[in-house]
Design a protein around this nucleic acid. Structure first.
Length: 593
DNA sequence: GCCGTTTTCGGCCCGACTGTTTTCAGTCG
């Protein structure tokens, strides 16, 4: 089993945790954390590059960390980590994940009570033993118990789509405060992350007192975590934390930037300011003690010599270098989409007909949709019947007559079986305008087997789109282990699009894989896989995700007019045996009854 | 541990808030 970048990153993160508990140089700790992030975001696998005699030059990875990466890739072990682990009980660093517990308190808990796990901490807190440790008290003990309870329920984070109604309702409520000029949703919600940990709100105006009172007395507040004159923090009934911060109007832009994050992006920008003998904080950009920018975000970037960087790109994934080089992507916009190539009908929970789906899509401004139901939707448990497909064809013909303003393509969503073959015979697939293939079941195959499975499916000459490629389900089902770079390169060679599925619990491809697709110039299809007409609106979430992944309009097949779509679908596929790296994947597809 | 418009050593982002103190350490974002 090769050691993956994610394995190396995990080791570096654990080293950082243990160094932190050891009270080591904070900058050394930051170096490990920064390297872990860089390695996790890096698109090529180190084990492959090192196997080819290469080692990439990456920021924050110098001689020492390069040697450690090589050691981990070669041996699967890291001597430094093993030495650190000998000083602590197993999983000791898990305690750092409890809000309110940092390295000092974790050490004290261990020295005073021998606590080395969250379970032990909970038991000690319930028994009232934690409050007697110097530096702790009854309030800290209670907040530890609350934090453990919240963490147990929401450790996976919250799907942004479910959080935004709460955020906008609270922002709207706060905006009624008489001394408030502006209120904004910042943080990871503004960066359009698929899963968020909390809600960050920023307000500006003439007086913060009434705002804070209003905030803390909001009907849905369950717990008040913190209440200062300009900053407050609460937990809502849903379990999500909300942080509110007030700044004076002239600092609005700098504060919006600061509270939008991400933290690594902010740190990088502050370093740029320092290099120019300036200081950047949430109140503004200062030179010689004088504010020179900060009323708007644009003013901050401009004063630092950079163009405006959209919030969804602010992850310290190369956006600052791209901004400096004038090479920021021209991000796709919602109105760029012309169609949806993965739409369902007649679902038990949706019950919308082809006509209803088509009319809603037309109202949304779409020029085409593809009806791509699962075979079993039409036939139940008795296997695929050709007559059902014929019946749907005639339904589509009827809908076409009723809604000539929108093109309706005949399609199917076929399952990719464990061996990479499809659950619908080629003889039927060839009668369709478009074929969407998707993994369904057997999510826990080995990385090699899962990759082979997808590569073989891509060899089917009728497949046009690989749907929700990682099969993750937010927030809890992890993505399948798969070599996505190999899948993308194969898809590109064969003219197949990878789907960015817009369902809020999928958003699959994720942002990093979107960026990879953009860099690899692989076609993307942003689809809703709507199960009823309302879900066609999820396309907006797909666009959000695409923007986080640097996707431009030209990367996306369904920004094209229907004529282009038809010619893309009609393109002959490469002969099955021609791409050298696919030999062995592309056997003849057996016909199934 | 990294890195260079402070360049091979010395600096590395920075302010708010809490709880437990008795002036501030620890933590968070």
């Amino acid at each position: 089993m090769p050691i993956l970048n994610s394995d190396v990153a995990k080791i570096f993160e654990e080293i950082a945790d243990l160094l932190e508990i050891n009270d080591e140089n904070p900058f050394r700790i930051r170096a490990y954390r920064s390297a872990a992030r860089t390695i996790r975001n890096f698109k090529f696998q180190f084990h492959t590059l090192i196997g080819q005699g290469q080692f990439p030059k990456l920021p924050g990875i110098g001689q020492d960390l390069e040697e450690k990466v090589r050691e981990i890739i070669a041996t699967g072990r890291c001597l430094l980590l093993e030495a650190l682990r000998r000083n602590f009980p197993p999983h000791f660093n898990d305690l750092l994940a409890i809000p309110g517990l940092g390295p000092k308190r974790v050490q004290r808990l261990n020295h005073a009570l021998g606590i080395s796990s969250i379970k032990q901490l909970r038991e000690a807190a319930i028994a009232g033993k934690v409050r007697d440790i110097p530096g702790f008290g009854p309030k800290t003990e209670q907040s530890i118990l609350s934090a453990i309870a919240v963490q147990a329920v929401h450790s996976g984070g919250f799907i942004r789509q479910t959080v935004m109604p709460q955020a906008t309702a609270l922002a709207s409520y706060l905006s009624e405060s008489t001394h408030i000029d502006r209120i904004a949703i910042a943080g990871s919600c503004r960066r359009l992350k698929d899963v968020v940990g909390d809600i960050d709100l920023l307000a500006t105006g003439s007086d913060s007192g009434e705002l804070m009172e209003r905030f803390l007395s909001y009907g849905d507040v369950k717990v008040v975590l913190m209440r200062g004159p300009i900053r407050g923090s609460v937990i809502l009934g849903s379990g999500i934390q909300v942080d509110l911060r007030f700044v004076p109007p002239e600092s609005y832009g700098a504060a919006l930037h600061y509270f939008t994050g991400s933290k690594p992006h902010n740190i990088a920008l502050r370093q740029i300011a320092l290099a120019q003998k300036m200081k950047l904080n949430e109140y503004g950009l200062f030179k010689d003690g004088k504010r020179i920018a900060g009323d708007t975000e644009i003013s901050v970037y401009q004063a630092l010599g950079l163009p405006f960087i959209p919030p969804e790109l602010r992850e310290d994934r190369g956006e600052i270098a791209a901004a400096r080089a004038g090479a920021l992507p021209n991000l796709i916009a919602y109105n760029d989409l012309r169609g949806d190539l993965h739409v369902h009908t007649h679902y038990p929970d949706g019950k919308n007909t082809i006509i209803e789906m088509a009319s809603t899509a037309a109202l949304l401004g779409l020029e085409y949709i593809a009806i791509t139901d699962h075979p079993e939707q039409r036939v139940g448990v008795n296997g695929f019947r050709r007559n059902d497909l014929i019946r749907q064809f005639s339904d589509i013909e009827a809908a076409r007559k009723l809604h000539p303003e929108i093109t309706i393509l005949k399609g199917i969503e076929t399952k990719i079986l464990e061996d990479g073959s499809l659950d619908v015979p080629d003889s039927l697939l060839r009668e369709l305008d478009i074929v969407v293939a998707a993994v369904d079941g057997n999510f826990d195959l080995s990385r090699a087997s899962q990759t082979q499975r997808l590569l073989r499916a891509l060899c089917n000459p009728h497949v046009n789109i690989l749907a929700h490629p990682s099969s993750r389900l937010l927030p809890d089902r992890p993505p399948c282990e798969v070599d996505m770079l190999a899948v993308m390169r194969s898809a590109k060679e064969r003219g197949i699009a990878l789907e960015l599925n817009s369902q809020p619990d999928r958003l699959d491809l994720d942002d990093l894989h979107c960026k990879m697709a953009h860099e690899e110039k692989v076609l993307i299809a942003i689809d809703s896989s709507a199960r009823n007409s309302a879900e066609l609106g999820y396309l907006r979430l797909g666009i959000d995700q695409a923007r986080r992944g640097w996707i431009e309009s030209c990367d996306v097949i369904n920004t094209q007019r229907i004529e282009k779509i038809r010619s893309w679908l009609a393109q002959p596929k490469l002969p099955q045996s021609s791409p050298s790296h696919l030999v062995g994947h592309c056997g003849s597809q057996a016909e199934r009854p």
